[in-house]
């Protein structure tokens, strides 16, 4: 026997990144096998963004536009782009776990010498890459509708908030994936998993994707206060939209007397510190339950 194929108990960082890259490559290869489907998906993205931009330019009055920096196209395009990335964080862990389970890959994956969470993240990685194509399409629609272009100096901070935003809601993603085993939410159909459905719905309703949070009734604004997406979207708009209001735009901004951008970052950090460990804990609990009740096996 050769010695190089001896099984390992743990992988180092380089080997772990190698596994993540092979999972991303797999998803890329599978997507290119169904390229027509991918093209149709992106045409749909373009149409959705264009509809939002049309509605914005046609229906938003000057009074409302002032609240969002006078440029609804920029407002909604940034909202859509960032919410897409955060939606990926919310949905990818459950999708990945569900995909592995239904394609009989889960048991062999569990025998890999690295935690299932890492494998799930590697599998989700490609979804983030495809999101960049989606964001580029949103950007294209924005340019077509006269979106004000941000200065190049804000690109790096905006990218930082983008990463922060994805991490901040990843806890919801793992919480959603935990439902796969905790409440047997295994059906591979849309909205069959309650956490993902709830967070996605709330994200669109109360986090300021399409309209300012202040336009909502007070109790819904309170709900939005507990969603990191609210602060991520506000923070990134402050960077990318030139005429975005400098003063308080969210209820929390007025409460602590801090600079709104600093308040955004603190709120994101606090919520992440709560949601991410909760999600990971629940995910591990789900796995533990599945190992007890046999929920990891489907076909064999």
């Amino acid at each position: 026997m050769s010695s190089t194929a001896m099984p390992k108990t743990r992988l180092n960082l380089r080997e772990t990144l190698g596994v993540m890259s092979v999972l991303a490559e797999r998803n890329f290869r599978l997507m290119t096998r169904f390229s027509a489907s991918a093209v149709m998906f992106y045409i749909g993205v373009f149409a959705d963004a264009a509809i939002s931009a049309f509605l914005g330019t046609a229906l938003i009055g000057q009074a409302q536009a002032a609240q969002i920096g006078g440029d609804y196209v920029s407002y909604v395009i940034v909202g859509l782009a960032y919410s897409q990335l955060m939606y990926t964080s919310i949905s990818a862990p459950h999708q990945s776990l569900s995909g592995a389970y239904w394609s009989a890959r889960l048991e062999p994956l569990l025998r890999a010498p690295l935690p299932l969470r890492t494998i799930i993240m590697g599998d989700a990685l490609f979804s983030y890459f495809t999101d960049f194509v989606t964001i580029a399409i949103y950007g294209l629609v924005g340019i077509l509708f006269g979106m004000a272009m941000p200065s190049s100096g804000v690109i790096l901070p905006a990218a930082g908030i983008l990463v922060l935003g994805c991490v901040s809601v990843l806890g919801f993603g793992f919480l959603s994936a935990s439902m796969f085993n905790l409440i047997n939410a295994k059906a591979p159909v849309a909205n069959s998993e309650p956490v993902q459905w709830l967070v996605r719905t709330l994200q669109r309703l109360v986090c300021g994707v399409y309209f300012p949070v202040t336009a909502l009734p007070g109790w819904l604004q309170t709900v939005g206060n507990f969603m990191p997406q609210t602060y991520v979207l506000d923070a990134v708009r402050r960077l990318l939209i030139p005429n975005y209001p400098k003063g308080p735009t969210l209820p929390v901004h007025s409460s602590f007397g801090l600079d709104p951008q600093v308040a955004n970052l603190i709120a994101i950090a606090v919520l992440t510190a709560f949601i991410l460990p909760l999600g990971l804990w629940a995910f591990d609990k789900g796995l533990e339950k599945a190992r007890k009740d046999g929920g990891l096996s489907r076909w064999t």
């Binding site: 194929a5 390992k8 190698g18 596994v19 092979v22 490559e25 797999r26 994956l109 025998r111 890999a112």
Partner: peptide
């Protein structure tokens, strides 16, 4: 791909 997932180099 499976060999890499199990920790082997490319």
């Amino acid at each position: 791909a499976w060999a890499r997932i199990y920790g082997l180099s490319k």
